[in-house]
């Protein structure tokens, strides 16, 4: 079964943790994740600038490890990322900003990538809100 997973909430929201646990369970169950799409506040999950308190789960770090380990397609919505200052090197250069927050394994791209993933997947699962 092919899943597309969209995440709308920031790294410190409980729904981001649920999304990660769902994604891990999907792969463990022998399923495929065609794309992870980080939209709206979900782009913060791809930020390398987030500092998580030591006694809390470091979601950005865990997402990074998960996406890298399984060589998943982790796409961050470019418009949502730009307005939140979550830039990769290319965008930081384009807009003359100092801070680069996103690198490997993430890719900044458009909302069309979510649409495309939904066409390819059997199920779209969205996580966000509380």
């Amino acid at each position: 079964m092919k899943f597309a997973i969209a995440l709308f909430s920031a790294a410190h929201a409980p729904s981001s943790r649920r999304a990660l646990l769902f994604a891990q369970a999907a792969l463990a169950g022998g399923h495929e994740i065609v794309r992870l799409f980080f939209y709206q506040d979900g782009v913060y999950n791809a930020s390398g600038s987030v500092v998580t308190p030591q006694d809390e789960q470091d979601l950005p770090k865990q997402w990074r490890a998960f996406v890298s380990e399984h060589q998943l397609d982790g796409v961050v919505c470019i418009a949502a990322a730009l307005r939140r200052g979550v830039l990769n090197e290319e965008e930081a250069g384009r807009y003359q900003r100092d801070a680069v927050a996103v690198g490997v394994p993430w890719e900044l791209s458009g909302l069309g990538q979510l649409h495309d993933a939904v066409q390819d997947a059997d199920r779209l699962i969205c996580f966000g809100g509380a």
Partner: peptide, 20 residues
């Protein structure tokens, strides 16, 4: 249910509607 069962539930039903 646990997370593996959550995954199976999402397959059992045709669509998943998250009330974001």
């Amino acid at each position: 249910i646990d997370y593996p069962a959550f995954v199976e539930l999402s397959i059992h039903y045709d669509k998943v509607n998250s009330w974001l």
